[in-house]
Simulated scan of single mutants.
Amino acid sequence: MEKRKGVITMNGNPLTLVGKEIKVGDKASDFKALTKDLKPFGLGDMEGKIKLISVVPSIDTKVCDLQTMRFNEEASKLKDTVVITISMDLPFALDRYCASKGIDNAITLSDHREASFGIAYGFLIEELRLLSRGVVVIDENNIVRYVEYVDEITKHPDYDKALEEVNKLI
Rank of each mutant, 00 (worst) to 15 (best):
R70I: 12
I53C: 09
G48M: 08
L124G: 06
T81Q: 02
G6R: 04
V137P: 04
C98I: 01
V7T: 13
A33R: 02
T81M: 03
T85D: 09
S132W: 00
H112W: 11
G134N: 01
G134C: 03
F117C: 05
K32Y: 09
K5E: 15
T35R: 08
E47P: 06
R96C: 02
R70P: 00
G118F: 05
V135I: 13
P40R: 08
N142T: 02
G19Y: 09
R113A: 12
I125P: 00
V18W: 02
V7S: 09
E148N: 04
K20A: 12
R129Y: 10
K32C: 13
G19H: 10
E114W: 12
G44P: 06
L38I: 07
G118N: 09
E126K: 14
T9N: 08
L124H: 09
V18L: 15
R145N: 10
D45R: 00
V63R: 03
V135T: 13
L94N: 14
D65H: 14
T81N: 02
S100I: 02
K62G: 11
N142A: 07
K5R: 14
N13H: 11
I84V: 15
E21Y: 06
E21N: 08
N72Q: 05
Y149N: 02
A75G: 04
M46V: 15
A75F: 07
K36G: 00
K79H: 09
R145K: 15
L124C: 03
S58L: 00
V144H: 01
V144G: 02
P40W: 06
A99N: 14
R129T: 09
T9Y: 06
N72R: 06
A120H: 10
M46I: 15
L131G: 01
D60S: 08
I107L: 15
I103R: 04
S116E: 04
A99E: 15
V82C: 07
R70D: 13
A120P: 02
R113M: 11
F31H: 05
T16H: 11
E148H: 08
V137F: 04
N11L: 09
H112T: 05
I119T: 11
D89E: 03
L78Q: 07
E140K: 15
K32Q: 14
A75D: 04
P91C: 02
L90H: 09
M10G: 01
K5C: 01
R129L: 11
G42C: 07
